[in-house]
Nucleic acid binder design. Structure first.
Lengths: 107, 107
DNA sequence: GCGCAATACATAGGCAGCCTATGCTTGCGT
DNA sequence: ACGCAAGCATAGGCTGCCTATGTATTGCGC
């Protein structure tokens, strides 16, 4: 089902996942898939650049770690990112309400 | 607030508005703005190409009319468009539920 | 009478962002 | 040995929304 309906909402989803301690990129992909009940099964080519974008914007910070012999780039929310998450959740609710309002008129 | 969060959802919104008898393009813009309480205030350069896309896909059909001295291209849903609207509403609900599920884990 | 805003349509061009494809390394199971 | 999952990364393309611009008509204010 995932096409580009997610466009513009991905950053918020990533912030939410990182906020609850998902850590590194691959885990973010898994968490996103599991929490959405397989609705958001996003490829690495989507997630990694998105995380880099978030870091460039200062919403997340990353550091290298090694776990189970594998290097991992672990992300966590910055203060700015926390605020962005709260704002994003508010904006999402407003957006969803607006869409619902338009759709309701249809039937 | 309108950025590209609407990306991928615009077609559904247009189908919904046309379904409830909005008619021509300019009226669609107004209806969208009013029903969403000013959240969706989209420029003509967004709406007209979108309506043309929908027509090319066979979801709407158009015809020229003249009202109040002005020419108007009036749109109405096709049978395929009706089904697309129903499907789109279902998909939207699933999408919104998925986003909510991911966001809930965050707090 | 004139200018300006709103109504109404249309299209070209730009840009952002998600996806596809590809490549690399390491660890584990068989 | 071999394959596959885990893990990271980037280049390139495509799609679709927005900006800017153009046309024409009606109606209002001055």
């Amino acid at each position: 089902m995932n096409n580009d309906v997610i466009r513009g909402h991905l950053d918020l989803l990533l912030l939410a996942v990182v906020a609850s301690g998902a850590g590194h990129g691959y885990a973010v992909i898994r968490a996103l898939r599991e929490r959405s009940d397989d609705a958001f099964d996003l490829p690495e080519g989507t997630i990694y650049p998105a995380l880099h974008r978030l870091e460039q914007q200062g919403l997340v910070v990353s550091s290298w770690t090694v776990a189970e012999g594998r290097r991992r780039r672990v992300y966590r929310l910055s203060g700015v990112g926390q605020r962005a998450l709260v704002d994003g959740q508010r904006d999402w609710r407003a957006f969803a309400r607006s869409v619902d309002a338009v759709l309701e008129g249809a039937r």
